[in-house]
Design a binder for these strands. Structure first.
Lengths: 189, 189
DNA sequence: CGCGACGTTGATTTGCCTCAACGATTGTGG
DNA sequence: CCACAATCGTTGAGGCAAATCAACGTCGCG
């Protein structure tokens, strides 16, 4: 159960047995059934979550009621309303399970002292954030320079495991197009 | 000269005199005249830069020769080809001065040992990266949910100091629209 | 079975692009 | 100091990719 997240963390930093123990003791288990919410707008964002098993989406609902998927998460990914988490604001995102999911959460107020005690964890999360930042950069570039068909093909190459797992209308939403358009794009391939 | 970046850093972490001294000793001054390049594709990205004075743009040139602006930077911002910087890859971005600019650079190979010696700096850059990450998230949301007019209005509200300073065709490019479209949008306001 | 979830197809509309031309302003060399 | 070029913004005409609206087929499940 915990060896998965341990291996995940140790890809970026090295921990001794005591540090691993300590880390595990800070994690909270969470289960969410498909179509249930891990987070909803207005709630305090106390945790960020590591996905042990399952599949989720984080989306924003605008004033017109339109959904906009910001992120998917499957095994080995982290998910939260990061903006709210970091700024200590109430959530503005929905995080909803697409499949029954099993998560490990770490609380913000526990993270800060952990950084102090074991700076390697500050490094770990800096590296994770940096990678996420870089991924967003290329998503921006993609949306600036490519048409819908190219973006879809890029998505399939970058996230093949997600493409196989979530319904097309979710992917369309993530790409910023309608399900009808995606259908026509797929037909043209 | 250095008190500006010191104040900037101290907004997020607290440093004693010795640490400030040490930090200053690691910085390298750099001047770039308007229309000159701080960075070009293919070059090694050894530094990330703090803007003391001036205005620059970071852009990607695609195969068709189209420019896509990823970022502007003015006083108190950091700029680099962050992806290449973090991954130790050659640059893929151009960084070009829009005005004569004065920068302070910090070398990657100096940053890593600095993190070890004074973990507060790892914290500082984690916080900076987190803020940048959050800003990119809202740019993504903006491009998913809003039309060109709304994105332009958002831009003017978020970055009034940039909007006043750079020509409209740069802003159009950043927003992913043509200068003609931006002109028509501005007319309609 | 009947209903909801998901994908597809067609007709029409629209936001933005492309191409082309034309001021206005700035700056630069003769 | 003027002439000319370059830079920047604007306007118009026409086109296209994707949205919208509407309908329908299929599958799986309570």
């Amino acid at each position: 159960m915990y060896q998965q997240i341990t291996a995940h963390v140790q890809r970026d930093i090295h921990l001794n047995t005591a540090e691993i123990e300590e880390f595990h003791s800070l994690l909270v288990e969470e289960k969410v059934s498909s179509k249930d919410f891990l987070l909803e707008p207005g709630k305090d964002v106390l945790y960020e979550y590591y996905v042990v098993q399952g599949c989720l989406k984080a989306y924003y609902l605008d004033k017109k009621g339109n959904k906009h998927i910001l992120q998917f998460a499957i095994e080995d990914w982290w998910i939260s309303d990061f903006e709210a988490f970091f700024k200590n604001e109430p959530a503005s995102l929905h995080i909803e399970a697409i499949e029954d999911s099993y998560l490990l959460g770490i609380k913000k107020e526990i993270l800060e002292p952990l950084y102090e005690r074991i700076p390697k964890f500050e490094r770990f999360f800096r590296i994770k954030t940096t990678n996420a930042f870089v991924a967003l950069r290329s998503r921006i570039l993609s949306s600036l320079q490519k048409d819908a068909k190219q973006r879809y093909l890029d998505f399939c190459i970058t996230y093949p495991s997600i493409e196989k797992r979530v319904p097309n209308y979710h992917i369309a939403n993530y790409l910023g197009i309608t399900p009808e358009s995606l259908s026509r794009i797929r037909k043209s391939l």
